[in-house]
Amino acid sequence: MGEAIVVTSGKGGVGKTTTSANLGTALALLGKKVCMVDTDIGLRNLDVVMGLENRIIYDLIDVAEGRCRLNQALVKDKRFDELYMLPAAQTKDKQDVSPEQVRDIILELKKEFEYVVIDCPAGIEQGFRNAVAGADRAIIVTTPENAAVRDADRVIGLLEQASVPARLIINRIRASMVKSGEMLDIDEICQVLAIDLLGIVPDDEKVIKAANSGEPTVMDPTSRAAIAYRNIARRMLGDMVPLMPLEEKSGVLKRFRKFLGIG
């Protein structure tokens, strides 16, 4: 029996889908059998980020309503043999599926896959309830902004009531802004939210480029965000990996320039 992990945040635009895609891929990279499930019905994105949009035949609603078998709706990734995705429907609404139906689908997937990564829609309404229904654990994604932390707190409260244990990923950290005090720092966020920190992901332009080209960032080992996601995936498997330093290591040339006072 595998484990179902929902990636959620409350607030939109903090990087749930990006995180889902990258963690799913990173787990596959570590040799795990993974299925990603997009529950953002009506606004599906996960397929775009993964570059699998043109391979979709059936979707989650089709499975829920019995128009196809679960296996028929799964889209195999183009990079990994052991990585699959169950897309959301684009033409339907979140009300068209019930939490019980999603729970059954997740339960079915858990029999076959080691990890089921559920991409949750923004908000705390029906879409959220659908996504959380079958989850064993949750990953909360937040960014170092007050609004995102508030919403994360709200979602953690709801998850506590549903007794789903949650861990935290702080996304899009800019070292320079944290250092100058313009951005909330990690300790501050952890103090308010009071849940375990699973990892931090630095703000990286490569993430946007990767999402647009349908290639998850995590495939590009030169990206700092990619390393961060890989570390998080290893922590999910139980490895002890230290948090990555926020400051980019300065190269010899940079240090030399700094020494001369022109860096």
Binding site: R150, D151, D153, R154, I156, V192, A194
Partner: peptide
């Protein structure tokens, strides 16, 4: 425990919370 955003605790009498009251709670 932690009273998180969106949660409300009401009580007749005095209240002692051992934990945080977060913004929005």
């Amino acid at each position: 425990g932690i009273v998180r955003s969106g949660q409300t605790v009401e009580h007749e009498g005095n209240l002692l919370l051992m934990g945080d009251l977060n913004p929005g709670g």
